[in-house]
Structures are given as structure tokens and as C-alpha cells.
Design a protein around this nucleic acid. Sequence first.
DNA 1: GTGGTCTAGACCACT
DNA 2: GTGGTCTAGACCACA
Lengths: 139, 139, 139, 139
Amino acid sequence: MTSSNVKIQIVTGDTRPIFKQIVDGIRMEIACGELQVGTKLPSVRGLAMQLMINANTVAKAYSELTAQGLVEPRQGLGLFVSEPRQLLSEEEQKKRLRTAVSGFVNEVAYLAFNTDHIIREVQEALIKLDGAPDTSDRD
Amino acid sequence: MTSSNVKIQIVTGDTRPIFKQIVDGIRMEIACGELQVGTKLPSVRGLAMQLMINANTVAKAYSELTAQGLVEPRQGLGLFVSEPRQLLSEEEQKKRLRTAVSGFVNEVAYLAFNTDHIIREVQEALIKLDGAPDTSDRD
Amino acid sequence: MTSSNVKIQIVTGDTRPIFKQIVDGIRMEIACGELQVGTKLPSVRGLAMQLMINANTVAKAYSELTAQGLVEPRQGLGLFVSEPRQLLSEEEQKKRLRTAVSGFVNEVAYLAFNTDHIIREVQEALIKLDGAPDTSDRD
Amino acid sequence: MTSSNVKIQIVTGDTRPIFKQIVDGIRMEIACGELQVGTKLPSVRGLAMQLMINANTVAKAYSELTAQGLVEPRQGLGLFVSEPRQLLSEEEQKKRLRTAVSGFVNEVAYLAFNTDHIIREVQEALIKLDGAPDTSDRD
DNA sequence: GTGGTCTAGACCACT
DNA sequence: GTGGTCTAGACCACA
């Protein structure tokens, strides 16, 4: 088999649209190292069949991943995981972090958890990602 | 003054829809004690005018707050902050926290910030909220 | 009329796909100052009707413009020209410039024009863009 | 050696399809005098092997070159560089230059580079090509 | 009314 | 075979 399998599950109950679930899922697999640089993604039609969704939905997810610079198309051959690079300017990254943080805080603030508990959960989730590759940052 | 003022700011750049910003904002003020039990909320039209948004949007936010049991309608008088009661089971709260965390992590994972930096930002944002009220919530 | 008109012409003979022509056209109008910051774009369905194309094609162009940070959506209201900001990292910008230059050179190199002539044409085209706003760079 | 070598590099990151890169590359070598009139091009399969691409892609590039009159097939012997002749009218050339310029400007307009910087890059790229051969083209 | 998402099915260029 | 583009028509959340 030339193209790697992808372990994505579409959850209809999810608040995220289908194409976003695909984007997130593949981004996660790349971040975790399950999808190595140079690996070929499953074909649009193939993944659409596997997930039992419309091919255009997969195509939209793939075009999003391409726009984000995570994968590169080779004409007539398919999409391949590309060398990681930072597309966004520092300013833009800061802005997005701020937005994400404020959104997250607004979601959890009214829950009966104290700050330490929330922080611990976030920390664990972040470390789980960083743990896979050879980034040796520990706390 | 019969109805208390609410200090809400609508941010157009926010990912949340406007009605959600209102719901979150009022919920926050109730949690912080700025809106005491029994206080009357501003009228739909009044708040819409104040925030310069469509009245339907405020109405939607209010109906959301009512459905969540945070406020109670008194026929012909308006909406009033109701007795606090824990509507979400512990299990439900944990689930929401987990969902929020994983969503947040997914959003910031591809940014070039290290774990510490992200944690610090979240911590600051949480403390800024917790600072004002008497935080009697333990986990 | 609340939303500004847009002077775009779809050319079927063009090598660019329709949605790209729209993106380029609007980007150009923003660059030239014809579309001021804060201006509302024509609605998806409205522009689709005007250009006699499918609404999804316009939607795709609009989502592209949004991804590039040129316009911002306000839920339920439409798309608005946003404050200019630099989305891309310096590294990414350099890369794109290199790619564009090499592509351009490859297209014109086999034409019987000398370097000076080509340079002059490019310069004029660039100045025409820069000339509109108050950037006072002249050669 | 019966057929001259061609020095072409296929760049996957290039916006041009592979067959176009071949066409451009060979056209460039002819223009530069590296491929003299009467020289035999490498065989379809040979070049495909050398570039590690599909033979059909090379065939398409060769048929394109033939259609443009740059090379001539001799039955059973292969393709040979043909006598130079100007296929494009002056009007057609001007039109192509204009198209290329406007496309290029559109691509770089949204990057945060000033006119001088862009011009310098184009100039360097053009000179790098013109440097080798005896440029006898005037406008 | 607005944009966003999804489906279904077609055609195209490229390999 | 591959991804990319376009159309047509539907449904949704939001204002």
C-alpha cells in the first residue's frame, strides 16, 4: 500500500463540521508523528468512501491542510505530508493564541473547577502532544 | 434604577457568536456576584440598544439563560437572576472540561509556542477572572 | 445601498479559475483603495447573481479572502474589508516571492524582450498599485 | 553520444506542472545555445528515467515542443532541434508579456515587499538567465 | 437576510 | 489514477 492509512472517526454529534474534524484529525496525526514527512495521504475519493461522506467534503479538508502548509500536492500523484514550516507571522500567532485562550477560558470559567485543576488538564493534554516527537521539553 | 446594568462588551473578532458572548458575559457577572440573586436584567430592547445589536440576538441570549436556569421570568416584569443551583452533574462538567481542553489544544498545537508559554497565558487569563470574586469552588 | 459594488468581470478565456478571478479582483480593489476598510462586500448570492455564476463559487472565493485575512465575517451580517495585517511570516513571504519571480521569469524569458523592457513593464505595473494609497515611494 | 544531454531539474514545489517545466527548460537551453540546431533530444523513455518521472509526461512535453515548432520529428530517429523561427507575432508577444506581468504583480502585491525589492529580485533572476548566452535580442 | 456546510454529480488537467 | 473546479440544490446557525 502506497498511501498511509489514517485513523479518523467522524462523530456526527461533534460541534465541529466534518471537514474540520478531518483537518484536526490529520493535523494531530502529523503532530504525533504517526504521519511522517513525505507520506502520502489517502486519496480524496478513497477517504470519502472510507468515512462514508461526500468526496467534496474531503477535498475541502485537504485544501485547508494545503493552505496551512501541512501537506503539499504533487500533481496527478496526490497529497504528501510536507516539511514542517511556520507559515504565520509572529504577530498573527500571538493574536491566535490570545483568541484561543480567551475562548477557552470563557468556556470553562463557569464550571466548578479551580484554576489549578484546569491548568493541570491543559498541561497534560499539551505534553501528550509534545511527548511523541523528540522535543525534550519537560516541566 | 429598577434593572441593574450589565458590563458586557461585544467583540466582533471573537469566534463566539454575539448571543453566546452575552450569555457568557451575564453568566460571568452572576458568578462573580456582580449580579445578585433577584436582580432584574435589562430589557431586551434596552440591552440591544446599549450594545448596538439586533434585539432578536438579545432575546436569543435571554432565552438561553432562562433554559439554563440562571434567570427566571416573572410575568410582565422581566427576567430576574434566580437562586443558584448546580444544573450540571459532576460527570457532565468533567466531560465539558475535557472537550474544551482538547479543542483548545487542537487550536494552539500548530502554533510555534512551547507548553510553558501557553500554560502561562491560560493561567493569567484564569486568574484575571478569579481575582474579583470570593472563589469558594473546590474540585 | 449598504454594500459596496464590486467591478469584477469574469473572463471565460482566462486561465485562472473563476473563484481565483474573484479573489484577485477584490484583492486588487482593496489594494487600490476602491474598497475601504470596513466596507461590506456584496452578498454571496448577490454577487453570484450579478456574475451569473454559482453561489458556491463566490463562497469559495470569499472563504479564500477570509483565510488571507483581507476580509472578516460578521455573523449574519456579511463580510467586511478588514484592517490590513501581515498574516505570513517573513520566511514564508520570501519563499512566495522567490516562487513568483521564478515562475514569471520562466514565462517571459523566451519572449524577444530584453531585460530592461521587462523590468520597465513590471515597474509600471507595481507603481500603478502603490500609487493609489499614500505611499510616497517614487523612483 | 548520439543525443545531447539536457540539464533540467524538476521542482515539485513549482506551481508549473512537470510537463511545463520540461518544455520551459528545453526551450531555455535552445535559447541559450546549449542545444544547437540539429541536435537530437534524449528519448522519451531516457529522459523519463533520468528525471524519474512518468514517460507519458515527457511525451506530452515533447508533443508540446513539436507543436510550437521548436523541435522536429524525423521518422524513426527521434526529435531534433529545428531551425529557429519566430512563431509569435509581435502583438502576441506583447500580449503575453502583459499577461505575465499582471499575473506576477497580482501574486506579489499582497506581500510586504516594496517595489524596489521586487524589481531587484526580478532583475537578478533575468540576468542570471541572460548571462550565459549571446543576447542578441532587442526590442 | 447573512455566510457556512454538505451532498450529488459532472468535467478538467496532470501523471 | 490523482486533485481541482464548477454547478445545483438543500439545510443550518446567526442577526
